[in-house]
Design a protein around this nucleic acid. Sequence first.
RNA 1: GCACCAGUAGCUUAGCUGGAUAGAGCACUCGGCUACGAACCGAGAGGUCGGGGAUUCGAAUUCCUCCUGGUGCACCA
Length: 571
Amino acid sequence: MDVFKNIIATKIAQATDLKIEQIKSYIEIPKGNENGDYAFPCFRLAKELRKAPPVIAQEIAEKVLVNNINNAIDKIEVTGGYVNFFINKEEMAKQILANFSNQGQYGSSKIGQGKNVVIDYSAPNIAKPFHIGHLRTTVLGGALYNIYKYLGYNAIGLNYLGDYGTQFGKLIEGYKRWGNEYKIDEDPINELMKIYIRINALCKEDEKVLEACRGNFKKLEDGDPYCVELWEKFKKVSIKEFQKIYDLLGSKFDSWDGEAKIAPKAKEVIKILEENGTLIQSQGAKIVDLENEGISTPCMIQKSDGSTTYASRDLAAIMYRAKTYDFDKALYVTSYEQILHFKQVFSVAKHLGIDDKYVKGLEHVSYGMVMLPTGKMSTREGNIVKIEDLLNESIKRAEEIIAHKNPELENKEEIAKKVGVGAIIFSNLSTSRVKDITFDWNAILNFQGETGPYIQYTYVRTQSVLKKSGYIPEIAEVSFEWLTDNYSQEVLKLICKFEEILEQVTQKEEPAILAHYLIDLAKAYSSFYNENKIIGENEEIQNTRVYLTRATGEVLKIGAKLLGMEMPEKM
RNA sequence: GCACCAGUAGCUUAGCUGGAUAGAGCACUCGGCUACGAACCGAGAGGUCGGGGAUUCGAAUUCCUCCUGGUGCACCA
């Protein structure tokens, strides 16, 4: 509520020599209700004014009181070194609900207008199964994509497919050797994975095989027809499989261009770096030394056999994206295993001769790993949990619960899908990015407490109330005096915070902030719901509480949608 | 060895650029469905915020150091 903050800051400014902006940065929101709605701590002023904080607080409080001609502030209290401001509860409710639009766009803004944000996320490797490790980037990137859009940015979602590199040399080698032993047409990804695991094992045993694999990749890069044909086949079947998962998760991308498309442009990168003298020869390869940047590992740009590297392709991608999208921000959503890689690439990007704006806009959005209780997942070793299995299991769980709690429900399958998938998405987004996640079936299939289904359930209850009330009032029919109890006020304050929460998410690239917010809102509404009778009181009260219910439901729905969760109307 | 990240209740975790009594959820104990959906609400118990030091009126938060765990460190991507 900037309105009230402004009023308070203005009043303090009148009472002191401080500047409004400075006062505003000091004003904070107290923890408990007993300390009011806003607080001004005087500790920092103590040194300058050479007085004890409580004395300063007392003086400010008195001066502000004298000037108080505004009915927004109910009372001012001094506790310790704080001046605590209590806002008139009716005014609070009035301001917040007046601000609440009925257009289904609450919290959206134009702060991002004219800014392009490219978000590189999901990016699964072709011919490898989509496992729960990939879920985080897919869901995290998707949420950022939605939220940036909602704030007015021109967000561009890139699914930078891992369709290139020595791994394909390996796959081609394996296919050449044992392709006819596997039923690739029936179950492509799993069969290809078996080949991949087998060829990896062989590479470990025999250095010559590994060289052959690298040779295959070089051939692929040089356009060898057989290799290209195989590669295209692998790619086609893989995308088909991935799309199934994206359909379930609701993931959308604006571009599916993979590394292969970018790879030819890597030569230009090499040329630029060579010409401006950044590139040096080392053991037959070409590298950029980054000692001066504080990075002790040099960045390899070209391998000794002349093929491109991950880094050179990423650099080419930066140039391509700068040119194509003119980005203000370029986000890379990958696990923290790649921190060094992006540090190197972003450093080398300074030497590409592109506008400084692009270099500054590069940002690695890293996240922790998903581990199994038995340790790290590895496609090569075959100990993975596939996303498809996880989603299906979760949907099954939702079906069981519905069968038990609400057997009469219509469209059971559709709702079970929303709930099951929502549970998975939410659980992926509810912990901060940096944290590792140990995968646990019990935890992820729990639908109680701080979970996706809890938010959905709360929303369903709001809709149930609206339906039962049969009439959605206008703001003019709301009597703010019925919103002065602590439960209503709690809900109101949260509704008010929504837009600020969305901005925080983009500042920190952290959708978990929104996830926690939705939990808080759902909890506050549940308490409100439990303590107040909504329908059947007199018309005035009913209209008021129904209005609050409607507002809450809308924020929950918008917020969930931004995270990538669908809201059922019943469950 | 060097670099980066993390360590908060039995488990999973929140804590904004330092601010009031460190908030939740799960599990556990107890209470609440003849008011609108109990996938809910309320109460209780559970904490040397990894250890130590420093800065400060004030530190979970900043700095130093140590311990523990994770990740990375040129021809995988």
